[in-house]
Design a binder for these strands. Structure first.
Length: 446
RNA sequence: GGCCCCAUCGUCUAGCGGUCUAGGACGUCGCCCUUUCACGGCGAAAACACGGGUUCGAUUCCCGUUGGGGUCACCA
């Protein structure tokens, strides 16, 4: 029998743009599916009509595409309400769902009292004691019920988490989750289970903020007559200051894209951060897919540092071939220009500056003390064979005429020729600037 | 407060009783290359939270303390 193929899913709520935490689980789900030749699903958890917005749904797809994490299928919970309705009906028949009439305020008060007494704020199941008469009376008063899933307090919950190992939960310490609001809208818990079952999800990879949800959902899967999928809960990311930062939460992909971060850098970083594998500046996802392994995941929160990401991104830029960046370069910039300039870039966008330095017009004024060197360069430039390592010849000639060397030799020439104090190797730049323009720039600097 | 995780260089981590004078990666520093800067190459410095046990022997096992993270919603 063929091995059951892997199906993973990324299930964001379209209530905002993707951010680092989100993307990390998306990357891991994607890597796991790719590694096993399975499918990676995008499921929009848009049961919350108030907050879900179409523009965010579009933004999420856009962000995933930019990162190269194309989903194999897309689903929306808003299109599946009928399925949830059926599942709830089955749960009711099985005695695993019951109506409750407390208001949000009443529940809030109960929790406060419990907390005040040092008790865990678990729902007291008062609604379970309601008689038919009670319910009829409440309904007559105009109250509508919300629905809770009834946990089986006698069935200890356990699963073998791919990252956290054996997990045990006592259902008596958990509240029966509300699955449907009194207005008929759905909460996350049940739809997620139904979808995972019906879409054939085999591995649920998500943050550890979901561990107790998993405990609840495992009973839900069983109540629905389906074997639960495998679970992997990864430790969350924290900001570089150590605390879980709000800033991290708002670090959106769109912002990073605008900041010039390479998508490959983000994927490489997020694939490996918090694992025992080194974060490497890889251009292709292939090595990330091949090495992906839940066993390498640490269980402590890892720090995400934007500066580190920027450094990784720079290293990736240094490796990017011309074809990979051509459409982001100024029109007319060719492979030779890119290769000459690439090692000095932190972002692809900076190539534009060098493009104008290479082929535009540069005019500088040499400092008084630099003039002899520049003057010597003007003379020397005329006698140079520009077809053969002109920079080496130029430097040698100027050195011979002026006696200058090292920095006092190089800096004046770099300034006169490029208008900058630093940049790519002059030996690579000079041939691209060309003889006539180089001479013009040197003369202009005098 | 209850429950669940976690605690090794600045950061991410390896380590699953002696092999640890604790390994790797990022960063940092130094050197080399380039007759400048950057890029690249090489090398160095840098850590077992604390207190009790268990043991012939603890980074490794147990307990506690401290610290960090998560969760306990009619959010997802």
């Amino acid at each position: 029998m063929a091995r059951m193929s892997v199906v993973t899913r990324f299930a964001p709520a379209p209530t905002g743009r993707l951010h680092v935490g989100n993307i990390r689980t998306a990357v891991h789900n994607w890597l796991w599916a790719r590694k096993h030749g399975g499918r990676f699903l995008l499921r929009l958890d848009d049961t919350d009509r108030e907050r879900s917005r179409e523009e965010y749904a579009a933004g999420i797809s856009e962000d995933l595409a930019w990162l190269g994490l194309a989903p194999d299928e897309e689903h929306r919970q808003s299109a599946r309400f009928g399925r949830y309705e059926m599942a709830l009906a089955r749960l009711r028949e099985a005695g695993r769902a019951y109506p409750a009439y407390e208001t949000a305020q009443e529940l809030e008060l109960k929790r406060k009292v419990q907390l005040g007494r040092g008790m865990p704020p678990v729902y007291d199941r008062a609604a379970l004691d309601l008689t038919d008469g009670d319910r009829a009376r409440l309904e007559a008063e105009g109250r509508r019920p919300h629905w809770r899933f009834r946990l089986d307090h006698d069935a200890p919950i356990k699963w073998n988490d791919l990252i956290r190992g054996l997990q045990h939960f006592d259902p008596a310490l958990l509240s029966d989750p509300v699955v449907r609001r009194e207005d008929g809208s759905w909460l996350y818990m049940l739809p997620s289970c139904v979808d995972d079952i019906e879409l054939g999800v085999t591995h649920v990879v998500r943050g550890e903020d979901h561990v107790t949800n998993t405990a609840l959902q495992i009973q839900m899967f069983e109540a629905l007559g389906a074997p639960p999928p495998a679970f992997a809960h990864e430790a969350l990311l924290v900001g570089s200051e150590g605390k879980l930062s709000k800033r991290l939460g708002s670090l959106g992909v769109d912002a990073m894209r605008e900041a010039g971060i390479e998508p490959a850098a983000l994927v490489a970083k997020l694939a490996r951060i918090g694992t025992s594998l080194p974060v490497e500046p890889v251009i292709s996802a292939a090595p990330l897919i091949e090495s992906f392994d839940f066993a390498t995941f640490g269980r402590a929160p890892a720090r995400f540092d934007l500066d580190e990401l920027a450094g990784l991104s720079a290293k990736i830029v240094h490796q990017l071939p011309f074809d990979a960046v051509a459409e982001r370069l100024p029109a007319g910039m060719g492979p030779a220009d890119w290769l000459a300039v690439r090692p000095n870039l932190r972002k692809v966008g900076e190539a534009g500056d060098w493009w104008t330095i290479l082929h535009g017009h540069v005019e500088t004024k040499a400092a008084e003390e630099d003039r002899p060197v520049v003057a010597a360069a003007v003379e020397a430039a005329r006698g140079i064979d520009w077809a053969a390592e002109p920079w080496r010849q130029l430097v040698a000639a100027v050195k011979e005429r002026t006696g200058a060397s090292g920095k006092s030799l190089f800096l004046p020439l770099r300034r006169a020729l490029t208008g900058r104090d630093s940049g790519p190797e002059m030996a690579a730049l000079l041939p691209l600037i060309g003889r006539d323009e180089a001479v013009a720039r040197l003369e202009a600097a005098l």
